[in-house]
Nucleic acid binder design. Structure first.
Length: 566
RNA sequence: GUCUCAGUAGCUCAGCUGGAUAGAGCAACAGCCUUCUAAGCUGUGGGUCGGGGGUUCGAAUCCCUCCUGAGACGCCA
């Protein structure tokens, strides 16, 4: 629809001698399809032109009407309502999709740009819980979206592989751990020990001191501490990688916090050279009071660095080594202040790219209305959620389509799709209370619904092929049914949707779009015979094929698989 | 206490760069499978858009204020 908007804006801006871009952004989609396909409210022109909106609308309608490029143009109140030539848009949209679905979505605005995205970033020796799901799936979707818009993207898993919690885990393991038991199920057992540590530490605060000592040993390169630490990491990574495989999540780099251990002194030195560090309560900080923020601690009073220092080092590394001009952090909203501080310090360090640092924040995942707590062992394992979702999918397949080939693979795709989509569709700053009943619901606005619609389109195309029909590029459009038009109309908005999703770094817009297309397709499917229609068969097959491609692409952007049957 | 973010139908949310009668899904109820996958489609009921002010031709959308909830607020990340 962007093309049509541009065309209208051009005529209007010529006629009223107003900037084309201003007019273009004012063109909107009427609330009611009866009114038209596109509309231009003229109220805002009234002041500058010193005429009534109704008058202007009438003039504009006359101008657009005279071009002969629109099916109808009407001035209603202060609005100009335009109906498009359905046949032309139909052909245009369908052909673009048949040729290359990516073209419908993108103008490749990001060519030449590089973004480094930090997402997922779980902690070593802790369970991969549903709490990590949001960062993981949102980050992965943003990776796909940016790539679609032409960006070069570097995906980074900033693993929590350093810090005093390793002292705690080591102490707990040495005190209460059984190597055999831990080897059976390392991450869960180590986590149990970690929880036990916190329980015991309530009564015996000296445990904390022991933990600190063990972490100090680790920092000093003690062989025993290092061996255990590395073991924790390799076992955790095994679990994480299996989660990522199932979720279809990939990274270009696994660079944990420890990777920056030797890169932080340079940050401290530079800050000192630039006179940005001041002493405060024994620590060295960057004063940010001019920006209404608390100081950013760089060196703690015990001389050690802290996460802000680490994030500064990591930011420099991502820019310098990966050539990233844009840094994106998909991290919970509770770290908003931290990132504002880090970004401000980067600016003070005169990094011109500091203004391109973005924190993609999201609300907290809760369970039974309560915050999940790793310390108290209150977590929902993602593994368990995926298992339940896949079981549910398998159950529904047995019930509805027992003869389906590849049942296990489809159940996996659908179950996991349900989990991913559920987290993506309503992405906002809202906190989410995790509920199995929501994730396991496959009706309505869900991943399985979108996948089902795609499979349905595939099924029609299979049936067509069996009867000797193929979707062709050169088809005649023999009139466009309202339901066909609704579908085309939705598909035509792909580019605007992707561009806004990229600009806002918001995958939920894509999810919404996919749902809208699905609804329009299912309505079309219900209202319009495809195979049995003589005259319209060609155009409807082409439309079905085009929709199939658009849905597959949209699902791909979100990180969902698109089975061809289910 | 200060700052940030949220508050739209019973529930979950969309709409928020101001525009036409506030939209979906779930749940409830009522229809639609001898015909391309009913994980679908259609319809009904359901709203002081947290309250109150203001700006505007026009406010769910912008500003102020209050209420409620969540989070952050220096040596964890």
């Amino acid at each position: 629809m962007l093309q049509q908007k541009t065309a209208i804006a051009k005529f209007v801006s010529d006629a009223l001698s107003l900037p084309e871009a201003d007019v273009s952004t004012m063109i909107e989609y009427p609330p009611n399809p009866e009114l038209g396909d596109l509309a231009l409210p003229c109220f805002r022109f009234a002041k500058t032109l010193r005429r009534s909106p109704q008058d202007i609308a009438k003039d504009v309608a006359g101008v657009l009407s005279a071009t002969g490029q629109f099916a109808s143009v009407e001035a209603v109140g202060g609005y100009v309502n335009v109906k498009l030539q359905r046949e032309l848009v139909f052909k245009d949209v369908v052909r673009t999709l048949q040729e290359d679905p990516e073209k419908l979505f993108s103008r490749k605005r990001g060519v030449g740009r590089t973004a480094a995205i930090d997402y997922s970033s779980p902690n070593i020796a802790k369970p991969f819980s549903v709490g990590h799901l949001r960062s993981t799936v949102i980050g992965q979707a943003i990776v796909h979206m940016l790539k679609a818009d032409g960006w070069k993207v570097v995906g980074i898993n900033h693993l929590g592989d350093w810090g005093t919690q390793f002292g705690k885990t080591i102490v707990a393991y040495l005190k209460w751990g059984d190597e055999e038991v831990v080897r059976q199920n390392p991450v869960r057992e180590l986590f149990k020990l970690y929880v036990k540590f916190h329980e015991e530490a309530q009564a015996n605060p000296e445990l904390e001191e022991e933990a600190r000592e063990w972490f100090k040993k680790l920092e000093d390169g003690d062989p025993e501490a290092t061996r255990l630490w590395q073991w924790f990491i390799s076992e955790s990574l095994k679990v994480f990688r299996s989660m990522y495989d199932r979720l279809g999540v990939t990274f270009d780099h696994y660079l944990g916090e420890s990777f920056y251990n030797d890169k932080m002194q340079a940050v401290v030195d530079e800050l000192r050279d630039k006179n940005l560090l001041v002493e405060s309560e024994g620590a060295e900080v960057v004063d940010l009071s001019a920006w209404n923020m608390p100081p950013c601690i760089i060196v703690k009073s015990d001389g050690a660095t802290i996460y802000a220092t680490r994030d500064l080092a990591a930011a420099n590394y991502r820019h310098d080594e990966f050539g990233a001009d844009t840094l994106i952090y998909v991290v919970g909203a509770e770290q908003t202040l931290h990132f504002s501080q880090v970004f401000k310090v980067l600016e003070l360090m005169e990094r011109p790219w500091a203004k391109n640092c973005k924190h993609v924040a999201f609300g907290m995942m809760k369970y039974n209305g309560e915050r999940m707590s790793t310390r108290r062992g209150k977590v929902v394992y993602l593994e368990d959620v995926l298992e339940k979702a896949v079981d549910e999918a398998r159950k529904i397949i047995e019930e509805k389509n027992p003869n389906l080939a590849d049942k296990d693979a489809v159940a996996e795709a659908v179950g996991i799709g349900a989990v991913i989509f559920n987290d993506l569709k309503s992405y906002r700053m809202h906190d989410v209370d995790f509920r199995f009943e929501d994730v396991l619901n496959f009706d309505g606005e869900t991943g399985p619904y979108a996948q089902y619609t795609h499979a349905r389109a595939c099924s029609v195309l299979r049936k067509a092929e069996e009867s000797g029909f193929q979707p062709a590029d050169d088809f005649q459009v023999m009139g466009v049914h309202d339901s066909e038009w609704r579908l085309i109309y939705q598909l035509g908005q792909a580019q605007e949707v992707l561009e806004r999703a990229v600009d806002d770094l918001d995958p939920s817009l894509i999810a919404r779009f996919v749902l809208d297309v699905c609804h329009a397709f299912n309505r079309f499917y219900h209202d319009c015979p495809i195979l049995s229609a003589e005259a319209e068969r060609a155009q409807r097959l082409a439309l079905t094929n085009a929709t199939r491609k658009a849905l597959a692409y949209g699902l791909h952007l979100l990180g969902l698989k698109a089975p061809t049957a289910m």
